[in-house]
Design a protein around this nucleic acid. Structure first.
Length: 306
RNA sequence: CCAUGCAUAUCGCAGC
């Protein structure tokens, strides 16, 4: 049972929902954990209704079930529902409180978020980090920093969150200063710094950083890729894309968008045909490129074919 | 010491 559940979870984590479902359905016995894993898998893939259905089929619920549902509602934008789940829970631990904090923060309810945070009798690093992120996402970088400085202990995620706050606000110097103070760094750290360089016209520095980095992954490459496309270095972008070990829809979208913007519509289509999957961004990138160049008919034809 | 729930990085358009 433990092994199967672990497998189920592995599938779920990697986005293989169908396989996860298959494993779940073929399990002869299940415990609360297996049910919870399946519920989370549905929720993470955006199938809120499936998650709700499963919830009602489950023989029992626990704190984890409730929290998972809370998060599912929140990521669907249903804060009210999330709050209802929260209120109806028999017991709440810190994770549940933090999840509710996030629910408010991610859905634009900064006031509620602050109120909840202030009412918490117990807080941990995650609670504080959620608040740092919340403030920064509403543009209150100073307040985010004040909170950051008031913390008694920090995790790498906390540091990264503060760094991203500066990055998202284009505060290159502050970002670099914070980066230099960090004694532990991971791929997120490096990528965040690269973003601030790339988005403020320091392409050279971004590339330099990329070459000096200690951790890379797909996202890192995507950041450099869009640094190239944003600055019009299409050839460098293409070279990078071709040399990448793995690519995802984001990588292709950046490239496609660059081609489309520069009027290389055939190249854009070539990318489109290369892509294993498309999303909304893919189509709107193509569509707006057509529309902005006055090819309304082409654009409309595309809409039909989607 | 790890089978399940909470925080951090990347792509388009429009809005604020």
């Amino acid at each position: 049972l433990v092994t199967l559940t672990a497998m189920l979870n592995a599938y779920a984590q990697n986005g293989h929902l169908d396989e996860a479902k298959f494993v779940f359905d073929s399990m002869k016995e299940r415990n609360l954990i297996s049910w919870n894993v399946m519920l989370t898998a549905f929720a993470d893939s955006g199938f809120l209704q499936a998650a709700k259905d499963l919830y009602h089929c489950m023989p029992e619920h626990d704190l984890i079930t409730w929290t998972a549902m809370l998060v599912a509602f929140a990521s669907d934008g249903q804060v009210e529902q999330a709050k209802r789940v929260f209120d109806q829970m028999d017991e709440r631990d810190l994770v549940a409180w933090n999840a509710m904090l996030c629910a408010y923060a991610d859905n634009g309810h900064l006031e509620e978020c602050k109120r909840l945070f202030d009412s918490m009798k117990e807080r941990n690093i995650v609670s504080w980090t959620v608040m740092v992120t919340a403030y920064s996402e509403f543009g209150y970088i100073r307040d985010a920093r004040i909170l950051f400085d008031r913390m008694k202990e920090w995790s790498l995620v906390t540091w990264n969150a503060m760094l991203s706050a500066y990055a998202q606000n284009g505060q290159v110097l502050e970002a670099k200063k914070l980066f230099d103070k960090m004694d532990e760094r991971d791929a997120v750290t490096w990528t965040a710094l690269m973003v601030v360089y790339a988005q403020n016209g320091h392409l050279k520095d971004a590339k330099l950083l990329f070459d000096r980095m200690e951790h890379w992954n797909l996202i890192t490459c995507n950041v450099l890729l869009s640094a190239y496309t944003d600055s019009g270095h299409i050839d460098s972008a293409r070279e990078l894309l071709e040399s990448m070990l793995e690519r995802d829809v984001v990588s292709y979208n950046s490239m496609l968008c660059a081609y489309a913007r520069h009027g290389h519509l055939e190249d854009a289509w070539r990318i489109l045909e290369l892509m294993p999957e498309w999303n909304l961004i893919t189509w709107s990138a193509l569509f707006s490129a057509y529309a902005q160049r006055g090819y309304l008919e082409e654009a409309m034809k595309m809409l039909y074919n989607m």
